[in-house]
Each structure stands twice: as structure tokens, then as C-alpha cells.
Design a protein around this nucleic acid. Structure first.
Lengths: 225, 225
DNA sequence: TTTTAAATGATAGTATTACTATCTTATTAA
DNA sequence: TTAATAAGATAGTAATACTATCATTTAAAA
């Protein structure tokens, strides 16, 4: 039996649903590759079209602009991560063990377990580390937020916040700690590889050390008092 | 007596030193204003030139491109912050109190104490919150890093790391905790105003709550064990 | 199986962006 | 006073970020 993961995406994320056609899937697959290769700034729909063997106008039928495409990719990533969190924690009772599992999912490289044919999840993880925050660090965050474009990110954050509260119902900052875990898992990874002096992991470049750091940070805060 | 703060900047940050001319100072002042107003993505040298009453070519004599200008502004900000950290902590002996002071400097709005005629420090603080990470989240971080473009950021981080070690010489992640404090101070501020459900401060929008959260996070980690 | 609609391909065109080049005129410093 | 140096003015180019149109292919409905 082959498991095919299909993530339901908010309609406002695209003009035409890329999951419903071959061209659409190619757009997602190749944009992830191109952004990974050259970075989001030098990524253009022209280059993407050439890469796919389609035309610029063709891409514009799916996404308003490259920023919207980034938001789509990020939303897909967070939905996929929440799904992985769900399947990896649903048989665990102890919230602390749940939280540890989540930290590991956030901070370590993905093993390509569930295949979604048109997305390379490992590369996706890497581009979200480097480019993910650009999805919302804009002047139009609030409007985009009203259109629910960041819902998957916020849902995941809310879920982590709840688990933090399960660990300690008196902890005062569950949501802020949740968003902190998410962002720091990515930032410490980026720093470790690119600006290593900002971390304590520069020498061995071991993602498990980021996990250890985050666990230490999180559990000493939650359990204290 | 009027105190004039002059920050020595790395020569590689610019083509011509903007501090050495009126036009240069206008470039810094107006670019901060424009980036604050419309965001970094829609910021162009053409618009900047029009705003100043100069020409595009004139700006290009000072900075290679707008990304370099952002790096310059960020570097200036981190240098200035390290200076403020120095004057605000040099008479304090207790490293824990030092650290609290630093968290406050990072997370709260600046009171315009020391004037640097051509920089509005309050607006600067806000644009670094929203745009600062874009200075290094690029495909050419490593080359830029070799040119020491991020030195002020790294110096500040190292300094905070040392103070953390002063608090507890056995703490295992001083540098990672330092970069975490810096980034989270800014991210929680951005979230609080723009994606409030990612924080516990959405209702009152009180920066002092970010300070409290960070203090709780930092000191429970450092002091534990 | 034909008709019709929808998606794609091909091509063209525009305004803006991101520059580079050159020449002239101020400003400043030797 | 002359000689650099910086700034202003103008022009030009390649690439980016789109929009529009029309023909063709593919897929769904009659």
C-alpha cells in the first residue's frame, strides 16, 4: 500500500490550485529546487518557467507573484509538519515526551518517510530555514494574515502552546515559548552552518545539539517554580 | 556640552563613507525612513534619490546596492546597541543584573538619549525588527561574513555570551542563548504587533511583558541545575 | 462521439528596477 | 590658483515583474 499525502490548502494561497494539474505540481517542485539553489531574491518566474519548460504567463495563472508562492510553500511546510507532529505524538501520553518529539521534528533533518511525489521535503526544510520568515516579514503581513495565509503556522504554534500548558498549566508564556521554539530551531540551524560563532555548535555541526539546547531551554523554563 | 556619537564602520560596508558628507548622511537618514514607511522590498535607490533630492547614480557612489545599504544600517544598529550596552552596564557588577539590563535594551523601545543627528534611533529599532534578519538570510552570507559585515552583530552576541557565562560558568550554550535572546526580543515584538496569536502579549501590547518572558526564559535556563 | 469549456503555449508589450557610463558643474584642499 | 574630488544631470541597457491576446491542446459534458 502506498500512502499518498494530500494537504488541503487555503484557496486564497493561489489563483489556480497547483495540486490539481501537472504544471501546478511542477511549479511547486521546481520552485523549491530553484529557491534552494539560488535563494529567494534571485528567484524569478521567468527562470522557473524556463526550468519547467513552460512560460512566465503560465506561472502567473497559478500565483500572483513570487512572494505568494513563497507563502504557499511555507504554508504547505507547516501543514505537513503539523501532520508529522500528529502522527508522531498521538500515541504518547506524557506531554513532556510529546514536546521533546516536536523539538526533534523541528530541529533535525527530515527522513523522507511519507512521500509526496512532487515535493522534496528535505530541501523544503532547508529553504524554510533560510527563507521562511520572509513570508511574513513584510509590510502587508496584517492583510495576508486576515486572508488566513499563515494559518498553518499559527495552528502549529497553538498546538505546541497547548502541549506546553499540559506540561505545566501555570506556565505564563505558552504561545510565546511555542513560537520561540519554532523560530529558534530554524535560526540555530542557519547560524550553525552560516554564522557559526553565533552558536555553540559550530565545530561539530550536529543538529542533535540544537535539540539538546532547545530541550534544556524549554524544560528549565516550564518546570521551574 | 553636546555629545556626538560617531561609530566607526567597516570600510567594506560601503563604497564611499556616508558619514563623511551631507549627501551620505541624508542617504542613511532617508533610507531608514523609506524602509520604515514602505518596507525593504519596495525600497529602491530611485525612490530614495527622489526623496533626498539627489540622483540614483549619486546613491550608487555610496552603496553597491540596496542590500549592502541594509547591511550597513544593521551594522550601525548593532554597533550602537553594543555602545548602549556598554554605557548601561559598565558600573554594574552583578552579571545577572547586567543581563537584565541588556534584555531590556533589546526588547523595549529606545528613548532617544544620545543624539546622532542623522539617525532616528526609534525608527531604526523598528526597521531592524522587521528587516534586520534579511541582512544575513541570503545565499551570500558566507562571503559577506568573510568581509566582516556582520561583525557588530557577532561582537554583541559574543559579549552577551560572556555575561551569560559570568552568571553561570557551567552553562553549556552561552552563544546560542545569546543569539536566541537577540532574535527572540525582536521576533516577539514583531509577532505582538503583527501576528499576535503567536504570543501571550497580543492584548496589551506591552513590551515589558516581552522583557519578563525573556528574563524568565533566560534565568531559568542559566540558573537551573 | 461530438461539442464545449478549460488549461496551456506562444508571443508581444509595458512600466519599473537595477544598474553603468559620461559629461559638467560645484566644492574643497593643497 | 590650480587640481582633485564629489555631486548633479542625463542617457542608456538588461533584467524583472507583470498584463494581454490568440491559438492550440486536453479534458469533461452532452
Amino acid at each position: 500500500m502506498e500512502i499518498q499525502l494530500q494537504i488541503k490548502m487555503n484557496e486564497k494561497l493561489f489563483l489556480r490550485n497547483p495540486e490539481h494539474s501537472e504544471l501546478g505540481k511542477k511549479i511547486i517542485l521546481h520552485s523549491i529546487q530553484l529557491i534552494h539553489k539560488n535563494g529567494f531574491e534571485s528567484f524569478t518566474f521567468k527562470k522557473l518557467a524556463e526550468d519547467i519548460g513552460s512560460t512566465e504567463a503560465g506561472i502567473y495563472r497559478y500565483f500572483e507573484n513570487k512572494h505568494r508562492l513563497l507563502i504557499y510553500i511555507a504554508a504547505w511546510y507547516w501543514s505537513w509538519l503539523e501532520y508529522r507532529v500528529a502522527i508522531n505524538t498521538n500515541n504518547i501520553k506524557d506531554p513532556a515526551i510529546k514536546l521533546k518529539k516536536i523539538i526533534k521534528l523541528l530541529a533535525t533533518v527530515v527522513e523522507d518517510d511519507v512521500k509526496t511525489s512532487y515535493v522534496n521535503e528535505n530541501i523544503l526544510h532547508q529553504i524554510i530555514i533560510a527563507e521562511g520568515t520572509k513570508a511574513y516579514l513584510t509590510k502587508h503581513v496584517s492583510e495576508d494574515n486576515k486572508d488566513q495565509l499563515f494559518k498553518p503556522y499559527k495552528d502549529l504554534c497553538a498546538k505546541i502552546g497547548e502541549i506546553i500548558l499540559d506540561c505545566n498549566p501555570k506556565y505564563k508564556y505558552p504561545k510565546s515559548l511555542a513560537s520561540t521554539i519554532i523560530e529558534i530551531a530554524h535560526f540555530q540551524n542557519f547560524f550553525m552552518y552560516n554564522l557559526p560563532s553565533l552558536t555553540d555548535f559550530g565545530k561539530d555541526k550536529d543538529e542533535l545539539k540544537i535539540v539538546a539546547f532547545l530541550e534544556d531551554l524549554v524544560f528549565s523554563s516550564i518546570r521551574k517554580g
